[in-house]
């Protein structure tokens, strides 16, 4: 899922201090699981802002609210009218949520209440780890199921660099060298010989280098269009 981490309160205060009515708007899916931006965290951030405002002699109004997801309209449409009454929405959703709201809130600005960090796993309680880079062209069947794009600091495709030290990455002793893990895993799977093959330069157009990416499921869109027509024909929609 998408992992996020909280921003320092000083940074948040810098963003919100000039507004009179602020909504801290939480998202109860991914970022709630990593304790960064669910409704509970939105509530905490709202009270931290209120405390700071009091200290600074600022009498702004700060409320909080949360919906299940910020990235699908059906979840926040019911509260949209309320949301638009504020001068500023501080969204504690991931960057997707912030963008999605910004496209829809007209003159009300939406600011990021957290940092969106990565696509990751819950390794253990309170510990999250990046495992996918969303590069748009998955090749982990060639690498024992472990991703060198997300997990190698150099996104190497053909094996470890010279910086692997005792199984750790040259960037830090507390980062596993994923190529070390890949080799060990493929040995275990009996597929190590696959690594002898040279992987050619990648087409990064499927990654962010091709501009904002979109997925369009034509069959689903056609189906939806047909259903809408049927509904209209049956007089279900004016």
């Amino acid at each position: 899922m998408i992992m996020g981490s909280q921003k320092p309160i000083d940074e948040i205060w810098g963003m919100v201090k000039d507004f009179n009515k602020v909504l801290v708007f939480g998202c109860n899916t991914c970022v709630a699981i990593c304790h960064a931006g669910g409704e509970k965290e939105a509530e905490t951030i709202a009270s931290l802002i209120r405390m700071r405002a009091r200290q600074e002699g600022n009498n702004m109004v700060v409320n909080h609210m949360g919906v299940i997801r910020h990235c699908e309209p059906e979840y926040f449409e019911p509260v949209m009218e309320d949301v638009k009454k504020y001068d500023l929405i501080l969204s504690t959703a991931c960057g997707v949520g912030v963008n999605f709201l910004s496209d829809r809130t007209g003159t009300v600005p939406v600011y990021p209440g957290i940092n969106t960090s990565f696509y990751g796993s819950v390794e253990s309680s309170g510990f999250f780890k990046e495992l996918c880079a969303g590069c748009g062209n998955c090749i982990v069947h060639l690498t024992g199921g472990l991703c060198p794009i997300a997990r190698c600091a150099k996104t190497l495709m053909n094996g470890p660099c010279g910086g692997t030290n005792k199984g750790k990455c040259e960037v830090s002793n507390d980062i596993d060298c994923v190529w070390y893990l890949i080799v060990e895993r493929m040995k275990m799977l009996g597929t190590l010989e696959k690594l002898s093959e040279i992987q050619p330069p990648r087409n990064w157009a499927t990654s962010r280098d091709g501009g904002p990416r979109r997925i369009s499921l034509e069959h689903l869109r056609e189906f939806e269009d047909k259903e809408a027509l049927k509904t209209r024909a049956a007089g279900g929609e004016k």
Binding site: G159, P160, C161, G162, G163, T164, N165, V183, L195, I198
Partner: peptide, 22 residues
């Protein structure tokens, strides 16, 4: 370049082979 004694050490000859094949 080649780091013959880097980790994982038994993969390093393959690493060299790939660079030679390239």
């Amino acid at each position: 370049s080649w780091t013959p004694m880097g980790d994982p050490i038994d993969f390093r000859p393959v690493n060299l082979m790939k660079k030679v094949n390239a």
